[in-house]
């Protein structure tokens, strides 16, 4: 009897230890810190929800929130489109299939900072390949990262490049569960290629699609590496994500406010998760 109780405890103890000490405590600690004025150089004091009140009137915070949500929505949308294309290609029977899968994994497998560095160089104003190619085509150089729209688009492109493989592989697992005979039957019944895709495949893989969207959205909402390297949050703060904005405060020593921003970011990620799960259930 006692063995029955002891064993599972022992087995999951290390897991619980790490999760509690290095995930749960930090999360709760962050919330606790957000209730303090905790700034380097001055005494720490409890200010309850004042940091959150300050958020309400902080224009840069709202700008960062808007950017973060927009970035997540736009980049996840394109990742789903390109991810689906890639998945369909990888699913097709071809001699290259194995190699193609490996190659498609590359952008995802390499460190995101390296991917960001590659794109930073591509976008460079004076000798980036994007402007050199435009120049060859007779169009003047574009300062890709110089306008809010340009910088936003540039970041989305880089993010889509990096994460499409991840989406593709998840969707591929879904496509492989679609029975071939069902598609063949539909073809016999006169459904064309596109009808078979939209009417049979998509509904069948909807649960997996939702999982992919969920994973990617939560991931895109915390975007940091890419922005840190490519735009540094500029121009004029136009591409500062919430993670980046929070980091700035940690860096300059305002831990309380940085923590409040982090808490809001978590809530946004959580709301998105709830939303997608809800949508998935309603349709299914």
């Amino acid at each position: 009897m006692s063995r029955k109780i002891k064993e599972p405890v022992l087995f999951i103890l290390p897991l619980i230890f790490f999760i509690v000490v290095f995930l749960l405590f930090p999360v709760l600690g962050t919330f606790w810190n957000s209730l303090w004025q905790d700034v380097s150089f001055i005494a720490r004091r409890f200010i309850a929800f004042s940091n959150y009140v300050r958020l309400l009137t902080d224009g840069r915070f709202w700008q960062a929130t808007l950017f973060t949500v927009m970035f997540a929505l736009v980049s996840v949308f394109f990742e789903m489109v390109f991810g689906m294309i890639t998945a369909l290609v990888l699913n097709a029977h071809s001699r290259l299939r194995g190699a193609l899968r490996g190659i498609a994994l590359i952008p995802w497998a390499i460190p995101s900072v390296i991917g960001a560095r590659i794109w930073q160089l591509i976008y460079r104003y004076d000798y980036g390949i994007a402007n050199i190619l435009l120049g060859k085509a007779g169009v003047g150089p574009v300062n890709w990262l110089g306008s809010p729209v340009g910088a936003f688009t540039s970041l989305v492109v880089a993010d889509v490049w990096r994460t499409t493989p991840f989406v593709a592989i998840i969707l591929l697992a879904g496509l492989q569960t679609v029975p071939d005979d069902m598609l063949q039957q539909a073809q016999i019944d006169g459904a064309n290629l596109f009808q078979r895709f939209f009417k049979i495949m998509i509904p069948l893989i909807r649960p997996i699609l939702i999982v992919a969207i969920l994973f990617r959205t939560i991931d895109a909402i915390r975007v940091f590496d890419l922005i840190y390297v490519i735009t540094g949050g500029g121009p004029g703060g136009a591409t500062t994500s919430l993670s980046m904005y929070g980091y700035k405060f940690f860096l300059t020593g305002d831990f309380g406010y940085g923590s409040a921003i982090s808490v809001i970011l978590f809530i946004i990620a959580f709301l998105f998760a709830l939303l997608f799960v809800r949508i998935g259930r309603l349709r299914a």
Binding site: F41, G234, G237
Partner: peptide, 30 residues
């Protein structure tokens, strides 16, 4: 001692002027 925070604020608004997103008057007021 809070120079870094102040500098960060000013940098952001000056950058907004240089990228044409904001007028000098508005940016400096903010």
């Amino acid at each position: 001692p809070f120079y870094t925070q102040i500098s960060d604020v000013l940098q952001k608004h000056l950058s907004a002027v240089l990228s044409g997103e904001s007028s000098p008057d508005e940016a400096l007021l903010k």
